[in-house]
Design a protein around this nucleic acid. Structure first.
Lengths: 349, 349
DNA sequence: CTGAAAGCGCTTACAG
DNA sequence: CTGAAAGCGCTTACAG
């Protein structure tokens, strides 16, 4: 089959050249020369020869021997999508700083991939796994850190948003603007954040004396990414004929879809209906109107996930570690929410 | 779902269990049972045991032995960004289909990373590299496929857009709408597509009898991702005081930034000024107004890059292969362009 | 300080 | 048809 056009020098060859054993050369090129009290002169000579012949240790052989690959696996629902990639940015930064590389796979909610990918990554000997917005159903023999809404589970550290705080930020913002009839779009059932977020909303609504009309609660259907499910959910909300002056959407892309549906129904945002999103993906500020939203510190969450995972790998999970790490949301007020104008704005007649 | 954990069994253990040699078991699990005429019954028994014990060959060991890693490296400018991730989606699909995994690194235009990452990936024994919108300056000992605007170079296959066609689509669309005074926003100098695209525009403008006013040509500055550079460029265009009725932006995000600048100057899009983007990233259709744009088949380009690279890896680059593969753009007409209203719309008076 | 040797977990040429 | 054995390129316990 394929043969390398360019043959890398091996340890064996290099040792023959410098007339030393592989052991000694290995120690020197790995910077352990002093530790083994190898004469400085010898070290220089070897290092020079190594540079001359372009020697770099074959990481595959090293991995096999050390049983360390300096590689982690990252599993996301969808790679072509703002949420995951924002997290990935943080993950990458932190990982590469420590000499780790990562594989990425996206399962697109396909059960076979959800099950197969962790296993494939394990076969690739990843030292740990980061699951982004993905529920891992099996116990894995490596440390797992999960970003967003993982169920609590032995051995999985979850980086999670303070959903109570998020619900508080969003609902009190809406309440301050005078909104009393608020519609909600919940996440898809498969999304790991859906339940937790919803419960936080219910609790917070109670605390703020906001009534949730069950008819004004829609749920995202299907697993298409993008704004389409949000568009559909908003249409469904509109069809109930019940009045509402604001929508709290599960995420930004849903909010964008909902705004389109509202427009089609000749409702202006935010004049007739306010819409608040969630996440603050890059597109949120570019939207028209720019989205008021609850920001998740996605990049930070990625960084935290990576550094936490690296810690677990180093400590072999033996030290005590938290079951979860909570990060805080922030209310970003832009133009998609405004003071309520009329409680019956969206009623046709 | 039942809980189960994958303890990686080794070939040695599995062979002990089924009481066969490692050779035989290896052949069976690699699907070569028939080739070696191993009794079907035996094969069944082994496969069953393998499944039961969750045996998967350790790819590190296999890689060392076969001198194949089934891994490629992908280098992109920025991972948290629509263009690269759209391409990545296609790359992933194609690669995983063939059992390949990939490492991703993002250089963010930092010269040290641009230089260091390819080396690091090589040390990881990647069998090939895909460069997305990134100019690779060194000769690499593995096949390289580049997506977008790579300079022609020995041993690098470039997946490139037909820029002539793209320019034709955009300019003739604008011309049909009556636009004669068109402003342009060129890409940053570091972007590998900038030059080629601009030359195509100049040629096509000539062919269509469209005059390019050098004063109405701005260039994206700085390396910030997002709409800010486009915003600045449009402001600069406005400050010239020269009349124009349309802007052809380097990409969609730039177009969005430009639209914001236009709005701040109380110019309506598309009523006063038409704006056409490039790429058709997911956010383009979500924009308000939804962007008219030149679509690049990004996902396809990723798939093509991956399958081409796999071909090169298999054939050891010995077979003749093309220097580049051209893909075609498509005009997507949405709401950011319209028939020209008045040639002096943007002149303050 | 330095080296000989074992061994990581596979695949595969070779032999029977 | 099946297995014993070599070996991929390293690292590292062990010995001197």
């Amino acid at each position: 089959m394929p043969k390398q056009s360019f043959k890398q020098a091996t340890l064996k060859e290099l040792s023959a050249i410098v007339k030393l054993s592989q052991s000694t050369v290995s120690r020197i090129v790995n910077g352990e020369g002093d530790k083994y009290r190898i004469a400085r002169e010898t070290q220089q000579r070897v290092l020079h020869a190594a540079a001359l012949h372009g020697y770099t240790a074959n990481t595959v052989a090293r991995s096999l021997r050390q049983k360390r690959t300096y590689t982690v696996g990252v599993i996301v629902p969808e790679i072509s999508e703002g949420y995951s990639t924002a997290v990935l940015g943080g993950v990458e930064e932190e990982l590469l700083k420590d000499g780790y590389f990562y594989f990425v796979v996206s399962h697109r909610h396909r059960p076979d991939l959800l099950k197969g990918y962790p296993r494939m990554m394990l076969a690739r000997a990843v030292e740990g796994i980061i699951a982004v917005d993905t529920l891992m159903n099996e116990d894995l023999p490596v440390p797992v850190v999960s970003v967003s809404g993982h169920k609590h589970r032995q051995g999985v550290i979850n980086i999670e948003l303070d959903h109570g705080q998020a619900a508080h930020l969003a609902l009190s913002h809406l309440k301050t603007l005078g909104h009393k009839q608020i519609a909600f779009i919940k996440g898809q059932t498969f999304s790991s954040d859906t339940d937790r977020r919803w419960r936080a909303i219910v609790d917070e609504a109670k605390a703020l004396d906001i009534l949730i009309d069950p008819q004004l609660v829609a749920q995202l259907q299907g697993q298409a990414p993008g704004p389409a499910p949000g568009f559909e959910a908003a249409r469904q909300l509109l069809q109930t004929g019940r009045p509402f002056t604001a929508i709290f959407a599960f995420n930004d892309v849903t909010a964008m879809g909902a705004i389109q549906a509202l427009r089609e129904a000749s409702l202006r945002v935010p004049k007739d209906v306010s819409v608040i999103g969630f996440d603050d993906v890059p597109a949120a500020s570019l939207n028209n109107p720019p989205l008021t939203t609850i920001r998740q510190p996605l990049r930070d969450m990625g960084q935290t996930a990576a550094s936490t995972l690296l810690g677990l790998i180093r400590d072999d999970m033996s030290l005590p570690h938290p079951a979860s790490i909570t990060v805080y949301p922030k209310l970003i007020v832009r133009k998609s929410t405004a003071h309520v104008a009329s409680l019956t704005a969206n009623v046709a007649d």
